[in-house]
Design a protein around this nucleic acid. Structure first.
Lengths: 250, 250
DNA sequence: TCAAAAATAATCAAAATCAATCATTTTATC
DNA sequence: GATAAAATGATTGATTTTGATTATTTTTGA
């Protein structure tokens, strides 16, 4: 195994578990203790981790991702959290629909790459999907400039040819009475259809979307499961009886 | 195996896996270790990858596309010439089909932006088209990674819904007897269909494409008009009787 | 505190990988 | 077809990485 591969594995494991034992790394990488020790020394020098007696630990101290404003960084973190959880729902062999939208894009890095099929109307997803070598189909139709989404009659007809195990999408409003809503009627129709073509549908939404209402109705609450974060129990109440909410915690 | 082929394979594998071992590349390309080492050295110089002990790794530094070689820059000038002429053929109110491919992309900046409708299977064209506020439809189907083209059965069905005044495409081979050819059969079928759905079809080709034959046949010469440059009269002769050639001059 | 156990660091030889060289083959040019 | 140029594959010795060994330090538990 090549050095960078090992380093990557080590960092990955440390990121997940916080601390790791040397012996675990030896087993994981199938190399000798000496090699692992050398790796840890190097990684510590590069400030990627902290060595501790018996292994190594993640350093929480600091710089993970520079640049990015306060808001968008926090926002992105939230999106990632939600996206990561959503990706965890995808199983090998699934066919899934990814609706256009920046929140949904965040799912892609976490998807299992083998044996899944993705259908999407989101042009912004294409590069990320192809880079991960995921089998990707795009639906045909009119390309809308602002949102880089494929919409319109043709898109509906194109979508009709597929069936999905799961679909993931963002919305602009979630309301106990008015259900899921979005500003553009054409996009609403696509979303609605995608939900109806999926065995399970998931709405990805940060807490600002709750109690909001946008122009075009997509569907009633019960037709999809909501994945969100940081929504306290009090605010969940009006929705809890009408649909399933998964609150992802940090 | 030819050098550019190997380089392509190497980059492809590295893109997929992040890191590759030299021995894997030797097996993959069925050449010697020496050759692979030389390849890696060259590719590293061109900033396409980073050599590591035992193999090579993808560089995340980012800038992927820029580095244009001597050759491709000259090539680009030719492409632009051809593309500009082709764009001049488009009239207001036309519906046109732009096939996937780098030559065709060059048409976009020269297109009249008002009152035309573009249909394409080329994902690489989308951004340029939307930036110019051109009414754009994309056909649905399987997204092929290497060429960023939409292909397959779905694409054929999707294409079927449209009719065009003109269509523009590149090819890999033009031959008096074997007509227009391209390496990928799926792409050939799409091209063929696009031609048959168009009132007029145009092939954009620099002079290196003449007398070449690729694997999959698209159509006979007479089905399209060839737009090329720098092809002297002597070489035009075998084709002139079978189709129309427009030679663009500098 | 002290001794045993565990973990670490230092050392070294073997293995793997590397760069440089050269003879041979392939390709391009006249 | 002859020649030059480029690409290739094998070989060599140098360098890097690795795993085992041994000595040193840290931790553990009585």
């Amino acid at each position: 195994m090549l050095t960078p591969e090992r380093h990557k594995l080590i960092l990955q494991l440390i990121k997940e578990k916080g601390v790791v034992k040397i012996q675990d790394l030896v087993d994981l990488t199938e190399t000798s203790e000496s090699t692992i020790r050398r790796d840890l020394t190097q990684l510590e020098e590069g400030k990627y981790l902290k060595r501790i007696h018996g292994g190594a630990a993640r350093l929480q101290g600091k710089l993970q991702e520079p640049s990015m404003t306060e808001k968008s960084s926090k926002n992105l973190q939230q999106k990632r959290q939600i996206a990561k959880y959503a990706a965890g729902l995808v199983e090998e062999g699934d066919s899934i629909y990814l609706d256009a939208g920046s929140t949904v894009t965040e799912i892609i890095p976490f998807l299992p790459s083998k044996e899944i099929v993705v259908v999407t109307n989101g042009l912004m997803h294409i590069n990320a999907l192809l880079e991960r070598n995921i089998k990707t189909f795009i639906i045909g139709g009119f390309a809308k400039e602002q949102t880089k989404a494929i919409i319109g009659r043709g898109a509906m007809a194109s979508l009709e040819h597929y069936r999905f195990d799961k679909c993931f999408m963002g919305v602009n409003g979630i309301h106990p009475q008015f259900g899921y809503t979005t500003p553009d009627q054409d996009e609403a129709m696509i979303k609605q259809m995608a939900i109806s073509l999926s065995r399970e549908a998931f709405i990805l939404a940060d807490d600002t979307k709750f109690s909001e209402i946008a122009f075009a109705k997509i569907a009633d609450l019960h037709t999809a499961t909501i994945i969100t974060n940081g929504l306290d129990e009090e605010h969940q109440e009006p929705y809890a009886s009408k649909t399933t909410i998964k609150v992802v915690t940090a």
